[in-house]
């Protein structure tokens, strides 16, 4: 068991190292200054606009995802027919 943990640790370490090297080795395009709007600190409105205009299709799909997982979860978790 200990060997397994050690192995897992090494594997995760390898993975972390790779991702870190990738992330640190990239010069990300970033804005020089975070945009600040003193009048309105919230971007909820922008997100809301995006969700209901640009991303309305994923939103619709998400509703079906929730329904599907609801059905699946309720069906599986129901205890009827238990031995």
């Amino acid at each position: 068991m200990r060997i397994n943990r050690l192995l897992s640790f090494l594997v995760v370490l390898l993975f972390t190292a790779i991702v870190m090297v990738g992330a640190f080795g990239t010069s990300w395009n970033t804005v020089s200054e975070l945009p600040q709007n003193p009048a309105d600190q919230s971007n909820i409105e922008g997100i809301g606009m995006l969700i209901f205009t640009h991303y309305v299709a994923p939103f619709e799909v998400l509703s079906i995802v929730l329904l599907a997982s609801l059905i699946g979860a309720i069906y599986l978790a129901k205890g009827e027919g238990n031995r």
Binding site: Y55, A57, P58, V61, L62, I64, V65, A68, S69, I71, G72, A73, Y75, L76, G81, R83
Partner: peptide, 28 residues
């Protein structure tokens, strides 16, 4: 038919969740 990562990811998960439940459909 998705042309955007957000839609692709949501739809991907839709198919996944539905099939997770289906795979365990024989719960006995």
């Amino acid at each position: 038919s998705s042309n955007d990562f957000i839609l692709l990811f949501c739809a991907f998960e839709l198919a996944s969740f539905a099939t997770y439940a289906l795979a365990g459909f024989e719960k006995q």
